[in-house]
Simulated assay, not measured.
Amino acid sequence: MKKKTRPLEQNENISQDNSGYFFQGFYDLNLSSPCSSFTSVQYIPCLDLSICRETGVKSIIKAHSKDMYHLLENVHFDGEYCRVKCAKDGEWEFCWDLAVRVQFFGKMQGVALYPKRSFSGKEKKIVYRSFILVNPYQLWDESLVRRFWNIQERIEFLVARILFHECIHVMISLGKTFPSSSGNTDIFLEFREMLDIAESKKLVTETNEVKFRLWNLALFGASGSESEQTLFERVQELYEFLINEKYSNQKTGQVFNSPLRNSKLARKYAWIAAVKAGGDQQISKRVWQVEVRRLSIALRALYDEIDSLLRVK
């Protein structure tokens, strides 16, 4: 008897924002194979993905974020890069290219590869490239089948849900990278609001506790040659990553009616942040795991307080 997959609402989108550990294995994907190719992923019947209409997916996204829709409007889901935004800052031009591919590739719902940057001093142009992989492997999940008997509607909903989550990360990167108001999308402004709350004086106790745990984990994962300033910057980067994931999961859950508890988010992303910090290079695995659990507890308290402050706004 084949093993059943967990219900859709109990699964989580996993998004990678930096190169390194979490990208191992994905570089070996055959991205030149056609998007509509058949799959032989375990527990999943073969399916021609060409039944997934780009217009159907984009229509779902448009209903919840017009800025995200405009970003995806001319992007095809074939893995080919499309220029989605350009902006001028003095003599320099900033451009953003985006590629999206829908493909079965194991049991990770989606991944947004950290944007690569290239620049030309002669043309005075900086180009950022982001790549999103969407994996609708949960297509035959029982709760999703009950909700959408029509397989075309089901796959379009699932692809839209995963793509929405991954595009949030892209839009946050765009907002942080592009000059002035050029990257101020609805998504980025909402994220900034949550980040401002997370760094406000009202949450100084919760913030300091999370950053203290991140500092310990950064020390545990340090190679030994990093300066104190480098470690401080790593802690701030990890802290923002944790708020990024809080917002991305919360926004996707609200839009697609699949909310996740803060306790579950905290456990998952505390572990990911700990690995991003460098793992247990300088300490025993047991001590490292204890510190990860402490980070998870502190992170849940921070997430709960963020929600409380957002509710009263």
Rank of each mutant, 00 (worst) to 15 (best):
K201Q: 13
G175V: 05
S182A: 15
L158H: 01
K202T: 10
V170W: 08
F164R: 05
A198P: 15
E156R: 02
F157A: 11
S180R: 15
F188C: 00
E193R: 15
R154L: 02
G183P: 11
L189T: 13
A198I: 08
Q152W: 03
K201D: 15
F191H: 04
F178G: 00
G175C: 13
L158A: 09
E153H: 10
S180V: 13
L203M: 02
K201T: 11
L203K: 11
T185S: 15
I151N: 08
K176S: 10
S200L: 04
G183A: 12
F157S: 01
G183V: 02
S173A: 14
A198C: 06
H165C: 03
H169S: 13
I151D: 09
C167N: 00
V159P: 06
R192M: 14
G183R: 01
I187Y: 06
H165G: 08
I162T: 14
F148I: 03
L163G: 07
G175Q: 06
D196L: 06
L174C: 01
D186H: 09
I172W: 07
K201P: 07
F157L: 07
F188N: 06
S182W: 10
W149V: 10
F178N: 00
T177I: 03
K201N: 13
L158E: 00
M171K: 06
E199I: 09
H165R: 12
P179V: 04
E166A: 00
S182I: 00
E156C: 13
P179E: 10
Q152Y: 09
E153F: 07
C167V: 13
F148Q: 00
R192L: 15
F178E: 07
M171N: 04
E190Q: 15
L174F: 06
G175I: 00
K201G: 09
E166W: 12
L174S: 05
G183C: 04
F178L: 00
E156H: 11
F191R: 02
F164W: 10
F191A: 04
G183K: 11
H165I: 04
I187T: 14
K202I: 08
I151A: 03
R192G: 02
S173M: 15
M194T: 13
K201V: 09
I187W: 04
I197R: 04
E199C: 14
I172K: 03
K202E: 15
I197V: 12
G183E: 01
N184K: 14
D196F: 02
T177Y: 06
L158K: 00
N150S: 09
F157D: 11
E190F: 00
E193C: 06
F157M: 13
R192I: 07
E199Q: 14
S181N: 12
S200W: 13
S200Q: 05
I155N: 02
E156G: 11
I187H: 01
F164H: 13
L189V: 14
L195T: 09
K176W: 10
I172R: 07
I172M: 08
I168M: 12
D186Q: 12
W149G: 11
L174T: 11
K202P: 00
F191T: 03
R161T: 02
R161Y: 06
V159R: 04
F148C: 02
I155E: 06
E199Y: 05
F148T: 12
E193P: 04
F178A: 00
L163N: 03
R147G: 01
S182H: 08
V170M: 09
I168C: 02
E199A: 09
K202H: 06
